[in-house]
Amino acid sequence: MRSGPYFFAWCDEAARVDAFGAALSALVHDPPYDVSVYMRPSPSFSTNSVDEAVAKIRAHFGHADADAYFEMLGSSGQFVPCILRCYTDRSERIKPWGPIHMHPREIEDFAPMHMDLALGSSPRSVEAEAEVAWHMVLDDLEDMLLRLCAPDATGRVSTGGCTSAWTWLAPVSMCATYNADARDIARDLALSWVSLHDTEKVSLIAGMSLEALHARVDAAPAGARVVPTDKSGRSIPLSRETVLKALVMPGSALIEALVAAADVRDEAWRAAAPRAEEIHNLTVQARARGERFTRGGGSLTWVELTGEHVYFLVDHAPFHVRRLPGGGVVLATHPYRTVWPLWADALFLLGITS
């Protein structure tokens, strides 16, 4: 069973252990269970005190990276075994994984390939079942991303994201992104451009200023284009000129366009919504009665996600634009999809595509 999805966060090395500690405190279940820490070549250790774990990491960080193994409590009430890692800049230059990153040890613990659902007497609907799966995953995805990137109000982490891939992709090719300052949302486009056009590792350039990113985009040949990942198989190019126009627009205008694009629901998703809501309500009622899936009886049915469910999510899963109280913003969709179609629609609404 493979691990994932993968969550990434960037902050200055000087604040990295503090950011790591704050994220660990937000992720570990309270009261705390054991946290196992590995800092090769230093000895590994286990503790049920997050403060103790962070103190020992701080003492050795600089000549050793840190891996913390723990369990977090998901919204379903199930514990999800996770790994949280903190790397020095030196390690990042050797092998850029992302200075702070985390992932569930098995993707099945986070986004199960099966669900126990109360389907009632109505016919099966792949589309409705896929919608239920989307709702089950999205809350946990956003929750984990915010616990990693914004566990407090310090703003140490400026940007981050989530993807089903094992590496930090171009932001528009991920299923979720985080920006501590919504006014800098164009960073997602600029980072994506520089990463794809100049084949740069995102984790090595995520800390660049918007001005520096702007200069990198501007230095590209006129008319240059890149094609971000769109898992539906479509090829939607992103031009240098579009990125430059977005970089000089107010961040608020970009956010409003993203919100408007996210608010457009396609007809296939809309048509399946009533049945999805019915399944959700029936399932909640069955679980409230204490029912569990049993073969050959009961109201709960074992529903395995098939290629049809996945393809429907890839093509139709909605996008969520979440403005945060502290001024940040999260863009998110299901891990089977990317946020690039959302961006493409928003840029079209703004009339700056070329």
Rank of each mutant, 00 (worst) to 15 (best):
G4I: 09
P5I: 00
W10G: 01
A14Q: 07
D18Y: 00
P31M: 01
P32L: 03
Y33I: 07
V35Y: 03
S36G: 05
Y38C: 00
R40S: 13
S42Q: 09
S46T: 01
D51C: 01
D51V: 01
A53D: 09
H60A: 08
H63L: 03
A64D: 11
D67A: 12
A68T: 00
S76E: 12
F79L: 15
P81T: 02
L84W: 10
R85L: 04
Y87K: 13
D89W: 08
I94Q: 13
L117K: 13
S121T: 15
S122E: 15
R124D: 15
A128Y: 07
A133K: 13
L138C: 11
E142V: 14
C149D: 07
V157P: 05
G160W: 07
W166E: 11
L169R: 10
P171T: 09
C175L: 06
T177Q: 05
D184R: 05
D188A: 04
D188H: 06
W193M: 05
T199Y: 12
V202T: 13
S203L: 10
I205V: 13
A206V: 09
M208Y: 09
L213P: 01
H214E: 02
A215Q: 08
V217W: 02
A224F: 11
P228S: 05
D230W: 06
P237M: 04
L247I: 03
L254K: 03
L254A: 02
V259N: 04
A260P: 02
V264F: 00
A271F: 00
A273E: 07
R275K: 08
L282A: 11
A288F: 08
G290H: 03
G290M: 08
E291L: 09
G296V: 05
L300S: 05
T301H: 10
V314A: 12
P318W: 02
P318C: 02
H320E: 08
V321S: 06
L324Q: 05
G326S: 15
G327K: 04
V330S: 04
P335H: 06
P335E: 12
L342K: 07
G351N: 04
